[in-house]
Design a protein around this nucleic acid. Structure first.
Lengths: 197, 197
DNA sequence: TATGTCTGTCAGTACTTACTGACATTGTAT
DNA sequence: ATACAATGTCAGTAAGTACTGACAGACATA
């Protein structure tokens, strides 16, 4: 039936409610009764499905992990024009990070309960850093950008976007007049000018 | 006596222990007994001093708030050489942010308990953004850097440093081979090249 | 109809934890 | 010596919360 109606099963409704509430209030800040109620189910059903609160959280993380997404960036077709490529990478980066926003929030707030989650979350940036590093090297070999310190260029670009993401993440409308898209566009120009020949 | 020995009074010991533990485990993740014990005092003494757990946290925030520190950046003597000035600002920024690290962590983890703290914490970046904006404008007027979008340049510089700080903050040694000081130096060079004439 | 599955209700247990009151102890100042 | 201020000990209360067991109703399938 679900396959036809598109409705979610009880298990998934509980997992989604758990992600929402724990991301907002933290693991210790939310009760199992609250989660069940947000899912429109009884607390008893929650325990029948998951046995314990901790297992509910772990299941939720497993279920909503967008594990390999950062690889999309690697598969995206590059056109070997610095500004175009950096812009596309920036847009994709924020797209993925925003989709993972709630899990990120949980991994920040409740690292104590979740050994290993933080480490797994950090694999993505590492992959992206290596990718950008190689990209800049290749661009230099092609003679399209100046020689320099490609790894630090990659790292700074990554940190700028990470900072912008975190800033939005926890504060919403923090800097009036500065939107995400204009930030991506302008910051790409800044980096592009820095390595122009 | 304290004035001579340099020892802290009971109240301050409790406040420090509270900051340490709440930053690490979150408000709901730590008990009053734990805090008192970490301060080497009894739980009873904690309540005699502060009355309630929440009031303890609020007092701790008041006590250890480095409210006006970001202004030091404004008073720091600029030499109107782009690389020197940006480097000095970067170093000072991380110095201040690191000193505020624990309060920052609390404001991220437990915003729920502390309405208004997040807002106060955001005043600093705004001031710094305005300051950088004006600095770049002046540099352009002096003919020392190219004309462009000073506000976005300031914002990107700020975000890069913020991202690097947060990255260290929650993950420690995340990117092997990339230390804070080398990041500041190299990122400054990247931004400087971007606006060189 | 009969059976199995999923769910709700309700009462309850065991544990944690913020917070209190009564009283003793220690050290300091007068 | 006496009074006072700060602290400890200990027992305890009240509330919250993760988690359970017993039972019943709804619904689909055979």
């Amino acid at each position: 039936m679900d396959a036809f109606t598109g409705e979610l099963g009880s298990g998934d409704r509980l997992l989604m409610a758990a992600i929402d509430l724990i991301a907002e209030k933290g693991y210790n800040g939310v009760t199992t009764a609250e989660i069940a109620s947000a899912a429109g189910l009884s607390e008893k059903t929650l325990f029948r499905h998951f046995g314990s609160k901790l297992n509910l959280l772990e299941s939720a993380i497993d279920r909503f992990r967008y594990a390999e997404e950062m690889r999309q960036l690697f598969e995206g077709k590059l056109v070997w024009d610095l500004e175009s490529d950096l812009y596309a990478i920036g847009v994709k980066y924020h797209e993925i990070m925003n989709r993972n926003r709630k899990l990120l929030m949980i991994s920040i707030k409740d690292e104590a309960h979740l050994p290993g989650l933080k480490e797994r979350k950090m694999q993505h940036p590492h992959q992206l850093l290596d990718f950008l590093d190689r990209y800049f090297r290749t661009m230099a070999e092609k003679g399209k950008i100046a020689n320099g310190n490609p790894r630090m260029l990659a790292f700074t670009f990554l940190m700028a976007n990470f900072g912008a993401f975190i800033n939005d993440l926890e504060a919403g409308e923090n800097y009036p007049g500065i939107g995400l898209d204009s930030f991506i566009r302008e910051s790409v120009k800044i980096f592009a000018r820095s390595v122009a020949r």
